[in-house]
Design a protein around this nucleic acid. Structure first.
Lengths: 181, 181
DNA sequence: CTGTTTATACAGTTTTTTCTGTACAAAGTT
DNA sequence: AACTTTGTACAGAAAAAACTGTATAAACAG
């Protein structure tokens, strides 16, 4: 194995690991591999270059890169005199982590909250309504308690996401590990 | 629609929403639906009862419940004189959130770290080696810088997971929202 | 011990997701 | 204008994941 191969082997090991663990970010191995490759390139890449390097179709490159852009893991780059679109990886993984949270969790939180608030209101009306049988009321009360707990959690989760989003988290968990020195 | 149906509709709306958003925890709709159902039941359930309620095979119930147990979202419950296994949902979602992090992220972090450290070491050896061509050395140095940044991130991430795991997070993001009162 | 009940391993089927090739629209070039 | 290049929509193929039924092992009852 010559030096160039050694270099590539070291790189590929890391890329493969990134790819395998990307499911935590809710993306497939292939897309993770694309990200890993871009991370190690010093130059932004075109779809055709990626197609070449990953041995996949251009269509796949197009959809994969879009997914990564939606997650703010990749950005489009402009270069004078270049007709093709160029893409580069976001390098700051702390930022990527925080963005993930904001992009993926916020919408889910508000969806769930809305559904729970609606159901909670309906159940409260059933409690008020005198025609509701006693047995049903008991169950409704029970469900209301569960929904109240769940809503408290979503409230907490929202505050947590804000804690990340604003970067406040970095005041408590420092980017540079002080304890090392 | 009578009262019982109203109650069920309110419940099902929430369960369906939980199911749809469970992909954030890396689990499928069906498994999410099982969790949602268990969350609203006051009694622990057997596999056969779940099979009945969800209209799925017992095999599915068995594997789904195991997935939820691995994630500490469901626990096995013992009841005197009951031959069948009983399962109940973990009710504290704050705890569930924290567990997710520990269970899913920790192993990935250490896998990635290991791969990166190995590659970093190999690249450093190439730098030292006088036979390595200058051009390769330049690239290796560049990769080492990227790996160093990535390892710093994983170090941060590890400290973050600990911050959750120990419950320290709750000192900063309180479970009860003070600003409400 | 034999017979019964419960949970799960495993193979095969169904469903979903991922990937590709073709077709076409948008933008650039001559 | 006509011709070329680039990115993506869309339909179908390939691969992966989810689900089921049967078979079997483990636990229990008599």
């Amino acid at each position: 194995m010559n030096e160039k191969e050694q270099l590539e082997a070291a790189r590929d090991r890391v890329i493969e690991n990134i790819a395998k663990n990307m499911h935590l970010y809710g993306i497939s191995d292939s897309i993770g591999r694309m990200y890993g490759m871009l991370y190690f390139k010093n130059q932004p890449m075109t779809l055709d270059e990626m197609k070449e390097e990953l041995g996949m179709s251009k269509t796949s490159m197009s959809t994969s890169v879009r997914t990564l852009m939606d997650l703010k893991m990749v950005e489009k780059v402009w270069r004078k005199g270049e007709r093709k679109d160029l893409y580069k990886a976001e390098e700051d993984w702390h930022q990527t982590f925080v963005d993930q949270f904001t992009i993926r969790w916020r919408p889910s939180i508000s969806m769930n909250k809305a559904a729970m608030e609606k159901s909670k209101k309906e159940l409260q009306n059933m409690i008020i309504n005198e025609n509701t049988p006693e047995e049903i009321k008991k169950q409704a009360l029970d469900d209301i308690q569960k929904l109240t707990n769940a809503l408290d959690y979503y409230d907490w989760l929202n505050r947590l996401v804000t804690f990340f989003e604003t970067g406040e988290i970095f005041e408590y968990i420092k980017k540079e590990n002080q304890t090392k020195e």
